[in-house]
Design a protein around this nucleic acid. Structure first.
Length: 377
RNA sequence: GUGGGUAUAGCUCAGUUGGUUAGAGCACCAGGUUGUGGCCCUGGGUGUCGUGGGUUCAAAUCCCACUACUCACC
């Protein structure tokens, strides 16, 4: 088990603060993990990631790293930490989500999933065993099981079968985990992923079956795939009660800033999402005064910083007019400065959530800040 | 100077024997993006059809003049 050392619990909601330890360092929760699919957080170098953005852990992806550069290269490099020059914790997603998002390219089978590479069309077969093996070669501090993320909408019968398949795979994941060892001298944890679509009894079944198998901790998968946001909150609230109290709860793929704050109040500790980085590359920026679409012509002559209340490298040094110019001119620096800002914002968001939980002011802060950051400028 | 060609959206250009409210691509403007392809998706036409006349029920389209650009030849 990966122990979450709980330091504060909010008295009026399920929010809590804590930390857990890996061989690459401590992670303080609640935490947001920047997404670095291909062994890089797009447009942001590792120095900025660590020193400016204060990322404590990043997410990378089994599917992408397996296809390119391939596990031989990663093993020759001595693992992903050395390969990408990142000595803090890394979590790797298993490829389960790619099975879901690349549906035209895959075929689900009892033993695993056959898929075609989005790079060259070559055929590959992922099994729970193989995915554990690849993650051993990557050397991530936290590995994720191979699961099936059901689509939305999803009828009960399909969702039920999907949970059963995910459980059968989970058992094989666990067996492979037990029968293999880390390659680089540091410990690796394995998280189970709970499914069940929008059906509470299936969520319950998934939670129970996975905990019977036993994992270091657990993630909530299969949400934020198109269901109404209130439905998502309802299910998160329901599911966190089914999860162990003293290990970090991870809500996969979520989300918008307001989704994260809300989910923290429902007892979630870990998040990842492509939104701060992907949206940054499309000039969609998050600020403490709401979202800013940096391409808009209204910023042509705006020489104020992007966010006067932000202390990131971008906001300290550049104007909105300059950022807009960089985007319109399609300059690479636009992607870098925007990504740095959005990630800084997300990390500061969870950091402030943590401070406010500790000071006992979390719900007040949450209600105020959600209104503030949801404004569309 | 003479003869030919061209002129339609910011750019490059379609536009039938004259026939509804003049189109495309790119650009531009406005949105979207939830376990990542910088991709992609959605919506928007922003126009004195070079200018002025004429023919016609009806002209970007036919006729005349002018203007600009361009090619060839003196």
């Amino acid at each position: 088990m990966l122990k979450l050392n709980i330091t504060t619990e909010d008295s009026s909601c399920k929010a809590r603060t804590g930390f857990f330890e890996t061989d690459h360092g401590i992670v303080e929760t609640p935490i947001f993990m920047p997404v670095g699919t291909q062994g890089t957080v797009k447009a942001v170098n590792q120095s900025y990631l660590e020193n400016e953005i204060k990322a404590q852990i990043v997410l990378s992806n089994t599917y992408h790293l397996y296809l390119r550069p391939g596990i031989e290269i990663l093993e020759s490099a001595g693992g992903l930490h050395k390969f990408m020059n990142w000595e803090k914790p890394i979590l790797t997603d298993s490829g389960g989500y790619q099975i879901f998002s690349l549906t035209e390219l895959r075929k689900l089978k009892e033993d695993g999933v056959e898929f075609k590479s989005h790079l060259d069309g070559s055929k590959h077969f992922f099994t729970p065993e193989k995915v554990i093996g690849i993650q051993r070669s990557i050397g991530s501090d936290i590995m994720m099981v191979l699961d099936e993320c059901a689509p939305y909408p999803c009828d009960y019968d399909y969702a039920n079968k999907s949970v059963d398949l995910t459980t059968r795979w989970a058992l094989l994941n666990k067996k492979s985990f037990i029968n293999s060892t880390p390659k680089y001298g540091h410990n690796q944890f394995l998280f189970g992923i709970m499914q069940g679509s929008i059906y509470k009894d299936l969520r319950k079944k998934s939670a129970e079956q996975l905990q019977e198998i036993g994992f270091d901790s657990y993630a909530i998968g299969g949400l934020a795939v198109g269901e109404p946001v209130d439905k998502m909150y309802e299910l998160v609230n329901y599911t966190t009660d089914l999860m162990p109290r003293e290990s970090p709860r991870y809500l996969m793929g979520v989300g918008r800033p307001e989704n994260i704050i809300e989910a923290i109040s429902l007892g979630v500790d870990m998040f990842d999402c492509v939104m701060p980085t992907r949206n940054a590359r499309n000039a969609y920026l998050f600020t403490w005064d709401g979202t800013v679409l940096m391409r808009n012509a209204r910023y042509k002559n705006d020489f104020k910083p992007l966010d006067e209340n932000c202390n990131c490298y971008t906001c300290r040094n550049y104007s909105r007019a300059y950022l807009r110019h960089l985007f319109i001119a399609e300059e690479i620096l636009a992607l870098e400065l925007a990504s740095i800002h959005n990630l800084y914002f997300y990390l500061e968001l969870v950091s402030k959530a943590r401070e406010n939980i500790i000071s006992g002011n979390f719900l007040n802060w949450r209600n105020r800040i959600i209104n503030q950051i949801s404004i569309k400028n």
